Computed example of a mutant assay.
Amino acid sequence: MKPFLTELFKGQSYDDKNFFLIAGPCVIESKELLEEVADKVSGICRNLGIPYVFKSSYRKANRTSASSFTGIGDHEALSLLKATGEKFGLPTTSDIHAHEEAAVAAEYADILQIPAFLCRQTDLLIAAGETGKIVNVKKGQFLSGPSMKFAVEKIRSTGNDKIILTERGTTFGYQDLVVDYRNIPWMQEHQVPVVMDVTHSLQQPNQTSGITGGNPQLISTIASAALAAGADGLFIETHPDPANAKSDGANMLRLDLMEALLEKLVKIRKAVV
């Protein structure tokens, strides 16, 4: 594990040979939702020795329809994210969408996440790097793993080497994604930890209904294959009631399925390492 990750997880007890987990509801809907998910997932991770980062977006800037939910307000959402992390002793992460958001979000989150569609935005990457926070860049659906070296170089140009890259699928036609597992070792060649974004890789975007579809029944398949391919971490969005979630309900894991899934994945990880 990279030293910056060891520092990030220093308050947690975990198996240092395990994968790390980034998980939470897609978007911040309420204090009650954040605490329910953080409480449940942190308890499971403690029992299984999995280091855990709590994730939820304070604002969703990339939505299919103008009528889609985007957030409860930036300040309120960021405050809830930070408070949840403090209450449950967890590092936190949320995505940012413009360079001016980096310094603001860095006051509340431990990891700044760069959305896949924005992974080439130079000013955004540099602003995130300049905060000194860990920066997790999601690979664009239109890019190969080797080409992500340029995103890494931009962040490193700020003197910040605390970088994670995340695979989240590749565009396949107009309304589907596929996962090319070669991207995991290819991105690890950039000397950074690599995460598999399991749930977003199962999206079916750009539906004419204005609501993104998904294949959550394949979550276990994608996660298992990623660990077999050597992924350092997994990203799994989860919600107690995905059908009524305000964002990405079609591909999130139902919260009550998390424990059995992680138990299985821990066994796979042990077999791989």
Rank of each mutant, 00 (worst) to 15 (best):
K154H: 00
Q188N: 02
G140M: 05
H190S: 00
I184Y: 15
M148F: 02
L165G: 15
T212H: 01
F172I: 05
Q175D: 15
S147K: 13
D176L: 13
G169I: 10
R156M: 02
F150K: 11
K154V: 08
T171N: 14
V195Q: 01
D176F: 04
F150I: 11
V178L: 14
L165C: 08
S147M: 15
Y174H: 15
K154R: 15
V179E: 08
Y174R: 11
E153C: 06
K149M: 07
V179H: 10
L177H: 05
R182C: 06
P185G: 11
I164Q: 00
I184V: 13
M148K: 07
I155G: 02
E167K: 07
K162P: 02
T208L: 12
W186H: 10
N160L: 03
V152L: 05
V194C: 03
N160A: 10
L143Q: 04
D176E: 04
S209G: 08
G213S: 06
G169N: 09
T212Y: 01
Y174Q: 07
K139H: 06
Q203M: 11
V179A: 14
K139Q: 13
Q207C: 04
G140C: 06
G145I: 03
H200E: 09
A151G: 06
Q203I: 05
K154W: 02
A151V: 07
M187I: 13
T171R: 14
T171Q: 15
K139L: 04
H190F: 06
S209W: 09
G145C: 06
K162I: 01
G169V: 12
R182D: 10
T170K: 01
L165P: 04
Q141P: 07
V152C: 14
Q203T: 13
H190T: 05
Q188V: 04
L202K: 04
F150L: 11
S209D: 08
I211M: 05
F150P: 00
T166A: 15
P146H: 03
I211H: 09
